[in-house]
Design a protein around this nucleic acid. Structure first.
Lengths: 372, 372
DNA sequence: TTGTAGGCGTTATCAG
DNA sequence: CTGATAACGCCTACAA
């Protein structure tokens, strides 16, 4: 990239003929020591002070271009890499980013971890995972200890923990940059509006799910929500009913049941729905795991999907495409969200609020209702 | 735990009446400074040298019990916690344990992370995750950089990476303690026998799977293997055929197909098996994802599981209990493996080789074959 | 059993 | 724009 691309150019002149370039002898002497280069080695061989090397490492603007190049040349030649241990001590911040979560599904977690790491690679920053149990009595204490002792560069908080204001207050207290991953931006001025936010816009896609079912001809539609108190529950519900309302479809109260994002809750809700005198011809389950429970219930009732019952889920988990028939569902842009979250923490985000749309994925579990 | 449990006992005597106990004034002065306590604060208030405090922190035996108690009392009173950043610099090792893996399924990864963390909690050691792509050209380079720069306390390597000898050589090179998670102990003396090993004994459970099918009356059994070169493939295959052989059941070559642990490979293999003139009455798929592909193939052929086709998988992933009928499968003791791996790295393992049995979980996907 | 002196590798302060 | 000097908080060697 730079003018001094050739290693030889760095300190090629024997006899110190070129000012500011170390002698080959000095380099040779370094080679002897068979140790990793430190900032001192670089400083000595580049004939500058440690501080200047430090400035180069940290992209300080206050370095003459010529100096910077000379230092960089030595850095490359010595394969110098600053150690995060020492930097952490001096910076009073560890070179780690932490991911804190309670209980999302495994695929969500792993995809998120992977996409965050995609951005962290090469930045010399590692990802520390911190699952926890918000029901535990020392949930906050554990987190406090962690933040206080580790002092991570930043923290990524996954839902539903990202809606926990006590946790956010903790981050503020320790002045730890954080990103909330959520499905609804915090109201301006509220605690939930602090820090960075990466939000999955689920309303439009859930609305699309409703419209999809209605377009197919469904009017009696069952709805299974997520657990109370989750932003995702609110958003998915709002989006879906938005779609129904726009089409002028009203849902009797008994078509609307509460779930808990678990297989069992989906199964039980479906059993109730399918036992209704006028059973729904379609069901929207607020996540795939519950939708899987609906498959079970339908099978037990002898109902064919999608012929007798159309079904839409949410998550596009692997099981959605593996189950038969494959499940029409909503896919969040998890990899984009992970990358965006990392960018926020790396200071490479333009805005403090990133919104990403999720999208409806139509598969075989939805069709026009059987004429009845 | 100790005699000086009460904080007041630590330095209660005003006027330095008690030798070796700091004055209340000194403590009060510390309180003023509203900073986290350092080893210096502890040393000063406990009237010992930093080194002695360090010895206490690190459980050195060379400390008089009385001194240790005095120091501990001050530590508690000051809520002193040594910072890993400084210790890392001095120890030349980060207080992190790293989990390295390529591509196991999400549930496996998350369960493993969780169980390892269970043991790490309270030890002041964090878990850094390091997924990577062994097909990438700079796979090893990336890992080398990571180990060289981060210097983790230890590394946990998940299969199939745990069978990569280049990776193991890297760990040896950097003298980094590691645990291999695998399904077959390395031959003594081989590269695979180095480091710690936590192995899942899958032969007995796979043998049990075969015996289970045979006991139900199956004789024409299809087998879908994992990808070539995986220890897990070898072990599951060996176990299953052990069971067949013990019962005197021979499998024609066409009943035995290669899979790749993916849904598609399971589906394709099943299609072939079910198209055989004498189709098998049962199939063992070497993991649940492939088994799910078999469900699909069976459904397309109009074959009922388990009536027309019995099916056994491996992993006991969530989908195994959600799919209909629920899948008979083999469950590895992943949480135990994770805890064992952490113990190895924490130096709390008795042996360098820990073996854990997996177990057959019988569900609804297996039954006697329909009389034909 | 305990302490002193020095180092781990980097960044901050502040003068020039 | 650059550098000397002092942190950062803990540990190791070597003494006592």
């Amino acid at each position: 990239m730079k003018a001094l691309a050739s290693p030889a150019a760095a300190g090629a002149e024997p006899g110190a003929a070129s000012p500011g370039a170390a002698s080959e002898a000095a380099f040779a002497e370094f080679e002897q020591r068979r140790r990793r280069a430190t900032i001192n080695d670089v400083a000595r061989l580049a004939k500058v002070s440690k501080k200047t090397v430090s400035r180069v490492i940290n992209d300080s603007p206050n370095v003459r271009e010529e100096t910077r190049e000379r230092v960089n040349a030595v850095i490359q030649r010595l394969k110098f890499r600053p150690t995060p241990q020492a930097r952490s001590l001096a910076f009073r911040r560890s070179f780690i980013i932490s991911m804190i979560y309670d209980n999302p599904n495994a695929q969500y977690i792993v995809t998120m971890q992977g996409s965050v790491l995609e951005r962290l690679r090469g930045a010399g920053i590692e990802l520390v995972v911190h699952p926890c149990d918000r029901a535990s009595p020392d949930f906050l204490k554990g987190l406090r200890d962690f933040i206080e002792v580790q002092r991570p560069l930043g923290v990524i908080i996954l839902p539903p923990l990202s809606e926990n204001v006590d946790l956010l207050a903790l981050m503020e207290e320790y002045e730890t940059p954080f990103v909330r991953i959520t499905s609804h931006p915090g109201d301006p001025g509220s605690a939930l509006a602090q820090g960075h936010q990466v939000v999955s816009k689920d309303r439009p896609s859930c609305r699309a799910a409703a419209e999809h079912l209605i377009r197919l001809g469904h009017r009696r539609i069952g709805f299974i929500s997520g657990p109370a108190g989750y932003a995702s529950t609110v958003e998915r519900t709002a989006g879906f009913f938005e779609g129904l309302k726009a089409a002028g479809v009203e849902l009797p109260a008994e078509y609307r049941l509460d779930g808990a994002y678990t297989f069992d809750s989906g199964y039980r809700a479906a059993c109730k729905l399918l036992a209704l005198p006028q059973r729904p011809t379609a069901i929207f389950a607020s996540n795939d795991e519950m939708a899987t429970g609906v498959y079970r219930a339908a099978l037990e009732k002898g109902l064919k999907i999608p012929g007798d019952l159309s079904l839409v889920g949410f998550d596009d988990s692997p099981i959605a495409s593996w189950i038969s028939p494959p499940l029409t569902t909503v896919r969040m842009a998890i990899p984009d969200m992970g990358r965006a979250a990392a960018d926020c923490l790396l200071g490479e985000a333009d805005e403090r609020l990133v919104e990403l749309e999720s999208s409806l994925v139509v598969r075989g579990s939805t069709s026009p209702p059987a004429g009845d």
